[in-house]
């Protein structure tokens, strides 16, 4: 099935940004704090190569893409192949 590129309801892009910007900002700060927390904890070096941490870093790369389909790509990243 092809992913649809239909609009989110009646919202325009500026309206979507208005509606979701603060929530996205809060989640990014939370993620940054989580990464800092891992670094502060004892044994942080030992988890640097942990696959879950690599997933987070790879997800951040996906977020920088300019094409839609980022959420699906991140989900696939976390899925068993």
């Amino acid at each position: 099935m092809q992913m649809s590129q239909s609009s989110p309801g009646n919202l325009t892009a500026p309206e979507v940004l208005d509606a979701y910007f603060l929530e996205a900002r809060a989640r990014l700060i939370e993620l940054a704090a989580t990464l800092d927390r891992i670094d502060r904890a004892a044994g942080s070096q030992a988890v640097q190569s942990d696959a879950r941490l690599n997933f987070i870093h790879d997800s951040l790369q996906i977020l920088q893409r300019t094409q839609p389909g980022r959420a699906k790509a991140v989900q696939e990243l976390y899925s068993l192949k």
Binding site: L22, A26, E30, A33, R37, R40
Partner: peptide, 17 residues
Amino acid sequence: YPISKATPARAVDMIEM
């Protein structure tokens, strides 16, 4: 406070740091 301020986890981080 939701969204605009700190969360419980981040607040505990700041107490620790």
